[in-house]
Design a binder for these strands. Structure first.
Lengths: 258, 258
DNA sequence: TCAAATAATGCGGTTTTATGCATACTTTAA
DNA sequence: TTAAAGTATGCATAAAACCGCATTATTTGA
């Protein structure tokens, strides 16, 4: 089949500028050099983009790059720290996604961060029960998003129920990416909400590989209902270095750490 | 020689434009050069197509091609000015909802505003295809929300497809609340996106009563695809006083005005 | 039905835009 | 202070957009 996207490495000007703003939303700052390398255009082009965006007041241009307008807002250090961690996790996770994959995901802030970090060129299909994740994925230029429908569980902002489970069962996915609520070497992955557990169990079953992502403080804790035993989990991603001692017990159980 | 469908037969203008929108929905961007090569027409033709589509607000034309509307949406702050009107509409609409009702809704800013205006004591069940509406409804303390699942249409942020239609068909709702894109006394309710039309048609069919809500400037305009004839619509709500002359023709067709 | 009216399309030539490069200048930090 | 990195400016070029006009479909209406 003829795809219109053959080797379409170049971006349209506006696209580039949107991308820059998106990066700014994400990281609060961008470096011209990074951008030009990333998007395969000359420094001049990026500089002109930044200039235009700055003229229309969408960002603050500084020597070497640009800052987000909202950067000057007060922020507490705790928050920033946690965001930084989630960003690391997101980056690592994004690297595991390949073109053409079918991926099941639940919700959670880590997943949202992951959605933002996906390569703009990626082609993949995401199935999700999370309203927020669906929206985030839908912002991506090229991936396809399928929302799994059912009753909306208000505190998780997730669709749950028999219908959703049934839909998931009809999918054969390559990956299942789950945010960690609690993960423990003996009890495995656990969760407090019965309905959400059913969804996650179904997702794991419907996928060839299961990836758990989350900040390390969620490790070595348990919640009331088990989602999966450790042997059902293939990959664990945290903000820590793969060789960090905290992760050793998990590695010993045969889980791949990134 | 056997070539692919898009190339060997001449496409009609409309076909071409639908194809362009489809590509846009898929990839969020198109390049004029790709399009003209792919459909075997001159650059000028494509340029004129894009121009038309851009004039009817279905895409954003940029140098070198076009971008999907959803790309730019976040920065569209012209929506701010009509907030007051939308609020009036929301208030009026909220009064029609009663305890115990089952309600189908699509998306759109009017619907979102409506969701915020619901009585906090209300008990009702909302079914929706709109990701944003689902989130808004889910913030309400007591109502129940069911997300109708399917592929996410990126510019509408709506789930569309056979699955969604089928799900809707299995519902017997009391009300169907639709945002107006275009409403015209002769052509009825119309819309630009084929997939979205299918959803709305199904919603109307599955409900006892259909309510159309939207600001008055959407009245007396037509779009390409018909969603419903006037006789399928029961109630019309705009920001105007029910006795405003603009609304007289609609009243004459037996529609209740609020 | 068929000719007139209208719409759609393609083409040549012109104008505009986007971009990269060369150069000279400015900021930054060791 | 000085070298490295970033910036501004002008210029060249290729691609895209535009414009008017000729040609070809399509629609309309007696």
């Amino acid at each position: 089949m003829h795809t219109l996207n053959a080797e379409n490495r170049e971006m349209l000007k506006k696209e580039r500028q949107e991308f820059i703003l998106h990066q700014l939303n994400l990281h609060n700052k961008v470096l011209s050099a990074d951008l030009s390398r990333n998007m395969n255009v000359s420094d001049d082009t990026i500089r002109r983009d930044l200039q235009e965006l700055s003229q229309t007041g969408r960002l603050i241009k500084v020597h070497g790059g640009a800052l987000s307008k909202s950067f000057h807002k007060a922020f507490d250090r705790q928050m920033v720290y946690s965001i930084e961690s989630k960003n690391i996790i997101a980056q690592k996770t994004a690297q595991l996604v390949q073109n053409g994959m079918y991926i099941l995901t639940a919700g959670g802030t880590s997943i949202l961060e992951f959605a933002k970090s996906l390569d703009p060129q990626l082609n993949a299909t995401f199935f999700t029960c999370s309203l927020n994740a669906a929206i985030e994925f839908a912002h991506h230029p090229s991936i396809e998003v399928v929302m799994i429908g059912d009753k909306v569980s208000k505190d998780a902002m997730l669709t749950t129920g028999a219908n959703a489970v049934q839909t998931i069962e009809s999918i054969q996915a390559d990956l299942c990416i789950l945010g960690i609520n609690s993960l423990d070497t003996s009890f495995g992955l656990s969760e407090n909400d019965w309905d959400v557990v059913q969804i996650k169990k179904a997702m794991i079953k419907a996928s060839k590989k299961t990836i758990c992502i989350g900040i390390s403080e969620k490790l070595n804790s348990q919640q009331k209902i088990k989602v999966a035993n450790m042997d059902e989990i293939d990959i664990l991603i945290t903000e820590l270095d793969p060789n960090h001692p905290t992760l050793a017990p998990f590695k010993r159980q045969g889980i791949t750490i990134y």
